[in-house]
């Protein structure tokens, strides 16, 4: 049962890899699937590690005194810590060609996130707040029907990933705009689905909103940059 997280991670990895493979055949600007995969994988693993340490510190657990607690990611990973940690590790790895590599990995990152959310089917964690909508689902032994919020997020992210990949392949977007679109999609979808998520202390809505605004800013910059070039 504890291995369901690994299964969800495997689904996420497979979705990201399939997207990179498809893009390699359809004009991904980076044209280097292996490197993009490695950069994405290292950034993700480092992000989870950093996010877990941040979550421990926030909970008042000393990671040096209790180093084994770090591997218990089910206990909580800070979304803010993981996202910023992954971004920092990505920036270090892609420092020579940051924008091109960020664009190259953007659709795969969204596909990976879609796969991760689809992994709720394996983890048994798709259900959210109560709902009377026709597609609402009740958990076993319950009469309370609920939003399948994990499926909402997975579908929206998958649509965003496919749309972005198509745009990159057939429309030649301005440099930097695919990465900005990926940030906007990921943050916007998390922001939209957060009210349906069951939560003890609430998700980092401020962080999703900040990322959304930052993504819009980068998108505007990339469009203006192309027009003035």
């Amino acid at each position: 049962m504890e291995f369901t997280l690994l299964a969800a991670a495997a689904i996420a990895g497979a979705a990201a890899y399939i997207m990179l493979w498809w893009e390699a055949k359809h004009g991904n600007a980076a044209r280097c699937t292996g490197n993009l995969w490695e950069i994405g994988l290292v950034s993700t693993v480092a992000g989870i590690f950093i996010g877990r340490i941040v979550a421990m510190l926030v909970d008042g657990v000393n990671p040096i005194a209790h180093p084994m607690d770090v591997i218990l990611v089910r206990s909580g990973v800070s979304t803010v810590g993981a996202s910023l940690g992954a971004a920092a590790v990505f920036a270090v790895q892609a420092r020579k060609n940051t924008i091109t590599i960020a664009d190259g990995i953007s659709a795969a990152a969204l596909a990976g996130l879609a796969g991760w959310h689809a992994g709720c089917l394996v983890r048994g964690s798709c259900l959210g707040t109560a709902s009377d909508l026709p597609w609402a689902i009740a958990q076993e032994g319950s009469t309370v029907t609920r939003h399948p919020v994990g499926i909402y997020a997975a579908l929206l992210l998958a649509i965003a990933a496919i749309g972005l990949a198509w745009w990159k392949a057939y429309r030649r977007p301005p440099e930097g705009s695919p990465a900005a679109i990926a940030v906007i999609a990921a943050a916007g979808i998390r922001l939209a689905t957060e009210p349906f998520q069951p939560s003890i202390s609430g998700g980092p809505v401020w962080f999703y909103a900040t990322a959304l605004v930052a993504g819009i800013g980068v998108l505007a910059w990339s469009i203006v940059r192309r027009k003035t070039a």
Partner: peptide, 20 residues
Amino acid sequence: HFGVIDERTLALQIDELVNG
């Protein structure tokens, strides 16, 4: 729930108890 419980599961099951 067997093993370490995550926030989503805990929140969902408490909501089942409170509103179910």
